[in-house]
Measured scan of single mutants.
Amino acid sequence: MGMPNRKYADGEVVMGRWPGSVLYYEVQVTSYDDASHLYTVKYKDGTELALKESDIRLQS
């Protein structure tokens, strides 16, 4: 078993793309699913969504 190939840690605050949009919002990573390679993130309004790594970026 190798290390999970994840870029962002639980609790890390990053920018997540809103689905169907080009806009990124501040989100907190809450979990990562090794099987689906999706991150569960929480937006400031409390919305929780699963995002692909390509829809997440570090805060500038």
Rank of each mutant, 00 (worst) to 15 (best):
Trp18Ser: 06
Lys7Glu: 05
Arg57Ala: 09
Trp18Ile: 09
Leu58Gln: 14
Gln59Trp: 13
Val14Ile: 04
Met1Phe: 05
Arg17Gln: 06
Leu23Val: 13
Tyr43Cys: 14
Lys52Cys: 10
Ser31Trp: 07
Lys44Phe: 11
Ser54Cys: 08
Asp45His: 04
Ser36Asn: 11
Gly20Glu: 06
Gln59Pro: 15
Ala35Ser: 11
Ala50Gly: 07
Tyr24Gly: 01
His37Leu: 12
Gly20His: 07
Val22Glu: 14
Gln59Leu: 15
Lys7Arg: 07
Tyr39Ile: 02
Lys42Pro: 00
Ser21Cys: 07
Leu23Cys: 12
Tyr25Ile: 11
Tyr25Ser: 07
Arg6Cys: 04
Asn5Thr: 13
Pro19Gly: 05
Met3Arg: 15
Gly16Tyr: 07
Tyr8Asn: 00
Gly11Glu: 03
Val22Met: 13
Val22Thr: 15
Ser60His: 13
Thr40Trp: 12
Ser54Phe: 07
Asp33Met: 03
Thr40Arg: 08
Thr47Ile: 09
Asp33His: 05
Ala50Gln: 15
Gly20Gln: 07
Leu49Asn: 04
Val27Lys: 00
Asp45Cys: 07
Leu58Ile: 13
Ala35Tyr: 12
Asp10Pro: 07
Leu49Pro: 00
Thr47Pro: 05
Tyr24Ala: 02
Gly46Asp: 05
Gln28Val: 15
Met3Asn: 14
Glu12Ser: 09
Tyr8Gly: 01
Asp55Lys: 01
Asp45Gly: 05
Gly20Arg: 03
Ala50Asn: 14
Tyr8Val: 02
Leu51Asp: 00
Gln28Arg: 11
Met15Thr: 04
Gly2Phe: 06
Glu53Tyr: 04
Val13Thr: 11
Ser60Tyr: 12
Val27Ala: 13
Ala35Leu: 12
Lys44Val: 09
Lys7His: 07
Ala35Gln: 13
Gln59Val: 15
Pro4Ser: 10
Pro19Gln: 05
Thr47Met: 08
Thr47Ala: 06
Arg17Glu: 01
Met3His: 15
Glu26Ile: 12
Lys52Gly: 10
Glu53Thr: 04
Val41Asn: 00
Arg57Phe: 12
Gly11His: 05
Met1Tyr: 03
Glu26Val: 12
Val22Tyr: 12
Lys7Cys: 06
Met15Ile: 06
Ser60Leu: 13
Arg17Ile: 07
Lys52Phe: 12
Ser31Glu: 06
Thr30Tyr: 07
Ser21Tyr: 04
Asp34Pro: 13
Ser36Ile: 06
Lys44Tyr: 10
Tyr43Trp: 11
Gly20Tyr: 07
Pro4Asp: 10
Thr40Asp: 02
Arg17Tyr: 03
